[in-house]
């Protein structure tokens, strides 16, 4: 694992993403890369979910992703003011997760190319999201 390069900021999901400067390749999702099969698992885990190898390393991933499907929520939740978009996304490494979508609510569609971004959230925390482009 790469040693932290700067003091970590307050993050909404400290186990899910790295902010800029935290590790090589950040910002991006926190993932585990298997040195045996080469595949990725979301988060820092002790075992590769593909092959059960325990030879895994913590890395930043998910800088690029594709939108699988999304919904625009019209009811506020979890500090998000409605309307806002939440997407099911698949990263270039094959990680699948829900993520907030930044930017216009118009034109969101399956297959949209997405990029990882960090965004300010309530209370001065840093959150993550995906934006088109």
């Amino acid at each position: 694992m790469t040693a932290p390069m700067t003091e970590a900021p307050v993050k909404t999901n400290p186990h899910v993403f790295f902010a800029a400067g935290e590790v090589d390749g950040a910002p991006g999702l926190s993932a585990s890369h298997c040195r045996i099969c080469g595949k990725f698992t979301l988060g820092r885990v002790p075992v590769c979910s593909h092959c059960f190898s325990r030879d895994v390393e913590s890395v930043a991933a998910g800088r690029r992703a594709t939108l699988v499907e999304h919904s625009v929520a019209h009811h506020p939740a979890g500090g998000f003011a409605a309307p806002y978009a939440i997407g099911l996304i698949r990263t270039e490494e094959g990680l699948t997760l829900f993520a907030p979508l930044e930017g216009s609510l118009e034109g969101l569609a399956p297959g949209n190319r997405l990029r990882f971004v960090t965004v300010p959230r309530d209370g001065g925390a840093t959150g993550f999201a995906y934006a088109r482009g």
Binding site: G43, A73, A77, L88, F98, A99, G127
Partner: peptide
């Protein structure tokens, strides 16, 4: 750890399943 802080609500999760 994964769904906190992202505005996750079950209506939106179910909406995505229904759209698929």
């Amino acid at each position: 750890e994964v769904t906190g802080g992202i505005g996750m609500q079950f209506a939106a999760v179910d909406a995505i399943r229904v759209k698929q």
